[in-house]
Each structure stands twice: as structure tokens, then as C-alpha cells.
Nucleic acid binder design. Sequence first.
DNA 1: CGTGCCCCCTGTCAGC
DNA 2: TGCTGACAGGGGGCAC
Length: 285
Amino acid sequence: MPELPEAETIIRGLQPLTGQRLGTVEVLYPDVVEEGPALRQGAEGSQIVQVHRRGKNVILDLVQGDGARPSLVVNLGMSGRLLLRPLGDPSPPPTHPGLRASVARLDGTPVGELVYHDPRRFGRIRLLSARAFQAWSETLGPEPLSAHFRSVDLEAGLKRSRSPIRSWLLDQRRIAGVGNIYANEALFLAGIHPETPAAEIPSERVPGLHRALKRVLRDAVAAQGTTLRDYRTAQGWEGSYGTALRVYGRENQPCPQCRTPVVRRVFGNRSAFLCPRCQPEPEVP
DNA sequence: CGTGCCCCCTGTCAGC
DNA sequence: TGCTGACAGGGGGCAC
């Protein structure tokens, strides 16, 4: 579910948490929370000093009473939601709450609760020490919307791999935050067939792919993400990028550029969508 | 090490 | 109407 644009939208909606304090933490799905008791102990009573994102992960930086600064790392899996519910919120409570934390101002005034909701329970919540967080973050590739993500580095990375480019883009160690929807959309914009071996993408096409990735991700952030089914913002709203999708989920519908029917192909255990005319099959030597 | 495959889990929907 | 199977946006583990 949530890829970079969805995680980015969620952290923007969670900014009111900055400077507030976590109260009681309840774990309702133990399998979604790593080290449940330790996490509960570590999070309860700590202050949230920053809410940010790394790839598809939502990060809450905390300060504990003893001055330690661990981070809560939330990976939303396929169906995870992080919902900020103010006191007296009239919307119906989440049906599959996995973790619930009360939220208060520093002076103790309760303001609401933060709920992690996840029917499929593919998501994970971990509490990492500052050192462990650093080490984990270094296992992830560059942030594709940052200036550190350069076309020349993308080109160098692609050259070293014979994976199909769609699979390559999904590997979080290469680029952090790209999932199946936006990989397919960017490959369409770049005119590259998803099964093209990474190393066989000609150098002159790499800047186009680099631009396409940035454009798709930026536009999806502006639209508050893509809601196919489960994804919601922290306020419980749907994202609107679904109507902008060019090929993803549009099997047999006309390509927006040339009207050729969009094709679905399954590889790497996942559906790829493409226009067979705009994204020609790679040449097999 | 890089790569591909399987699986974790529940909900929904198409087809019979 | 009700059942069955396919499928879903992620990622970890394992075998090769």
C-alpha cells in the first residue's frame, strides 16, 4: 500500500504531534509490534520531537525521561493506517486497531489518540535506539525527491544489475520509497518496458527515468497519495492520485498516449502494467 | 552477494 | 444468494 507519497502525506498530517507527549500505549495486535512490552515502556511518557519519513516508513523521533532519543519506525505494509484522532472525533473508530497511544500536551492536557490500524497485519512498528535507527537508515537507498538522488548515480546503480527494471525500482536498498504503483507509472512515462534488464537501459534514457520518478512521486504527494482501497491520510481522508494513474490497474483500457490497450503482466510475484506500444519489449540477444 | 520465489494475513470481488 | 479462488499498494527469509 503506502509508498513514499502516502507516507509523506501521513507525516504531514501528523505534524500536530510535534512537541506533544505519548501517554498510555495499548498493543492490540502483538504481531504488528516488535518487542511489544519494551516498545510500550519506551514510548509511554516520551515526548515526540519530530515526525518525519524515510522511504515508505513513518518515523516518530522521541525523547525519553532519561534523555535517550529513540525513534518509532512504522512500516505500514499493505493495509496499515496511522490515524490521528482528536478528542471527541465523531468519525467511527478504526475496525482493526493494532496499537493505540493516547496523546497529551506537555502540561498533561489530553488532546486525542494516535491509532495504528492494519487489517492484514503486514505492517510493523519498531522502537529503535538512535544508533540502531542510523544503521537501519543506511541500509536504505537515497530519497528520490532529494537533491542527493542524481541521474548519474541512478545510471551507475542500474549498470550493476540484471534485474528487470520494475523489480530493481522496488528494491528499497537502491531507492527508498518506490512501490509497485509508482514504479509502473514512472516506467510508462519514461517509455521503458518493466521487464527490461536494468543494465540494458541505454544511458541516454536514464535522465528520462530519473525525471519520471521525480515527477510521479511529486505529483502523487500533491494529490495526497493514491487510495485504491485501504490507504487513508492521518485524518482518515482518501488520496486522489488514483484518477491520474496512466497504466496501473488499467488493464485493457486505452493508453493515454496512443490508445493501445494497456497490458497486465505478472512477474516477480506482482502485476506490471504497461502500454505495449509506448514501452516496447526489450530486445533479446 | 545478487536474484527470484514463497509466504505472512484479511478483505473484497468476479465468476459460477 | 452463497461459495470459491484470485488478487491486493510490502518486505523478510530462504535456496541457488
